[in-house]
Simulated scan of single mutants.
Amino acid sequence: MPHAVKFSQFGGPDVLELVPMTRPVPADGEVVVEVMAAGLNPAETAVREGRYQSEYPLTFPVGQGSDFAGFISAIGSGVTGWAVNDAVFGHTILASHANFVVVPAGNILHKPDHLPWEVAGSLFVAASLAWNAVADANPAAGQTVLVHASAGGVGWIAAQLARLRGATVIGTASPSHFDHLRQIGVIPIAHGPDLTERLAALAPGGIDFELDHNASPSLVTIDSTDERALAQVAVMVANHQISVPVAAIYPLGQVQDAYRELEAGHAHGKIVLSMLPVGYAHQKVHAVDIRASEAMKDDPNRAPYPHTHEALPPVLGHRRGQPHPHYVEGDID
């Protein structure tokens, strides 16, 4: 039986419950997606804790999750350009942590064949915000960009997008993330006192643009109509032009543990729920390129880590590029 994550009161991860769900039926202009992977975002924690109740009132019970990737399982009338079994990634509001999600057709994009499910399922929110931040700043080659929280999901992608434009990127982060930032060509600098003076030493010519993306809950500020930009980011990730590290993968039933790790604030990379996890004990999986670094001393001269695509076991989630078995053998039990 399919399930969805819900909560019926504000609070910590303990209020999250896995409840049976009825497979949704698409209305006009909608599609139903069987979710393979779904990412976690800090804004979801803020909403679950009631911090945005005055701006975005909720009526319990409430779903959970924004990002997702999966296969189209049903198409509503009036939808063109899509077919059942198409592999997609997309965005919804408080609903992606489930076996099925129904969304407007404009909320999904084709998943590139070589983009892992675990990365695709955590990409939409961070990529949207990062792309918009860099596009608004529009840095050019030779300019210097300061990216705040550059080791976070949005800042990590924004820093790489700015570097691809030829800009020098300085990123604020805790010292434990300095090595990760050097791996993508970002000059790290610690949060804290005397930041202005320390920045002046790193960038004597000054900072041309400053990107700070910590203002509002991302799950309600996404413009899902900017398909070209998001599709371009997805291709860049699939082609290894941009890295999106995955810190941990949990099965849907361990969503509470997944949010506990997210809220601890120590993970570098996205935390993802897998809906069809490989069946072995202690399902949580750490990508080699992230966790291996935690046992090593920070070294500016270290060789780059392998790409997440190479570090993640290929059996996770679902076989990439293969037809979805459910639409040959039957629905989820």
Score class of each variant (00 low, 15 high):
Ala231Cys: 08
Gln254Lys: 13
Gly81Glu: 07
Gly153Val: 05
Gly78Lys: 13
Ala43Lys: 15
Ala151Tyr: 01
Ala83Arg: 15
Asn107Glu: 07
Gly185Ile: 03
Ser66Gly: 14
Gln53Pro: 02
Val235Asp: 06
Arg48Trp: 09
Asn99Ile: 03
Ala83Asp: 15
Leu312Tyr: 01
Glu30Ile: 12
Asn107Val: 01
Leu109Ser: 14
Gly11Pro: 05
Thr168Leu: 13
Glu118Tyr: 11
Leu273Trp: 05
Ala95His: 09
His110Met: 08
Ile157Ser: 03
Trp131Ile: 03
Thr225Asn: 12
Pro61Leu: 05
Tyr56Glu: 08
Ala303Arg: 12
Pro57Gln: 05
Ile290Asn: 12
Gly321Asp: 02
Val119Ser: 08
His318Phe: 10
Val220Asn: 10
Arg291Lys: 07
Leu273Pro: 10
Thr144Arg: 03
Asn107Arg: 11
Arg319Asn: 08
Ala120His: 07
Arg319His: 12
Ala190Ile: 00
His268Val: 09
Ala127Gln: 06
Leu40Asn: 04
Tyr280Gln: 14
Ala120Asn: 09
His97Gln: 15
Leu115Thr: 07
Ser176Lys: 15
Ala130Asn: 06
Leu195His: 00
Thr92His: 05
Arg23Phe: 00
Ala135Lys: 14
Thr308Val: 15
Leu252Ile: 09
His309Ser: 13
Pro300Trp: 04
Arg320Ser: 12
Arg302Ser: 11
Ser218Asp: 05
Ala200Thr: 14
Glu227Thr: 11
Lys111Val: 06
Leu181Asp: 05
Arg319Pro: 06
Asn85His: 09
His213Phe: 07
Ala74Tyr: 01
Leu109Ala: 13
Val31Trp: 04
Pro306Trp: 04
Ala234Gln: 09
Gly106Phe: 00
Val328Trp: 09
Met236Lys: 14
Pro204Gln: 02
Ser150Met: 07
Pro325Asn: 02
Asp223Thr: 04
Ala203Cys: 08
Asn239Ala: 10
Asn214Asp: 05
Gly78Glu: 11
Leu219Arg: 13
Asp113Tyr: 02
Pro325Gln: 02
Pro323Tyr: 01
Leu276Glu: 12
Glu55Asp: 15
Ile332Tyr: 09
Asp113His: 10
Ile249Ala: 13
Phe100Gly: 00
Asp208Arg: 00
Tyr259Pro: 13
Gly205Lys: 14
His97Thr: 01
Leu146Trp: 00
Gln254Glu: 15
Pro217Ile: 15
Val101Arg: 06
Tyr327Arg: 10
Phe10Lys: 04
Val125Ala: 09
Pro245Phe: 02
Ala74His: 01
Val79His: 11
Gly29Phe: 09
Asn107Gly: 04
Ile249Lys: 01
Pro175Met: 00
Val47Tyr: 05
Glu34Val: 04
Arg319Phe: 08
His240Cys: 10
Asp208His: 11
Tyr250Lys: 01
Lys297Phe: 03
Gly11Leu: 10
Glu55Ile: 14
Thr308Arg: 13
Ala258Asp: 05
Glu263Ile: 08
Ile207Gly: 10
Phe100Asn: 03
Ala87Tyr: 00
Trp156Val: 06
Ala105Glu: 12
Asp67Gly: 09
Glu197Phe: 00
Pro314Trp: 05
Ser96Glu: 02
Pro323Leu: 04
Gly81Tyr: 10
Phe60His: 12
Ile184Val: 15
Ala120Leu: 10
